[in-house]
């Protein structure tokens, strides 16, 4: 059931979402998005350019994070604006568990025409991996 504008206020929290990202997920996202940058699948090259290991595509992290908003909104088409800053890479280990991603969201502002701004806090292993992650959602 989608929330109505009258159901939410500044501070309303979205259900917390956790997901895991494995190397297989990186391969799948590379194919689906067309982003074939080797640092997302090749450990040797990732280390050569100074990274601690293979890292997730920033847009994979951003795409997983906004699921917390679309699931809450009820209709993904209600997300009219979404912006992120990539503040820290998500290192994906070469094992079956991968990296964990935790997404928390809260309504940060009530805008005109039944729109609300949701601010997301996205962490992996306790570190914030996105900053200024914000979605504008048209409710009702």
């Amino acid at each position: 059931m989608s929330p109505r504008p009258t159901d939410v206020e500044v501070g309303t929290e979205l259900p917390e979402q956790t997901s895991r990202v494995t190397r297989a997920d990186l391969v799948r996202y590379a194919g689906a998005s067309g982003d074939l940058n080797v640092i997302h699948w090749n450990e040797r090259v990732a280390r050569e350019v100074g990274l601690p290991g293979v890292i997730a595509h920033g847009m994979l992290t951003a795409g997983l994070a906004v699921r917390a908003v679309t699931a809450w909104a009820g209709d993904p088409g209600a997300v009219v604006d979404y912006s992120v800053r990539f503040s820290r890479p998500v290192v994906v280990p070469d094992d079956d568990l991968g990296a964990e991603l935790t997404v928390r969201g809260r309504v940060a502002a009530l805008l005109e025409d039944g729109r609300v701004r949701v601010d997301l806090t996205v962490t992996s292993g306790g570190d914030k991996v996105l900053s200024l992650a914000r979605a504008v959602v048209a409710l009702g």
Partner: peptide
């Protein structure tokens, strides 16, 4: 590296 991304629908 990718620094920021925004989508306005």
């Amino acid at each position: 590296v990718h620094g920021e991304q925004r989508f306005t629908h």
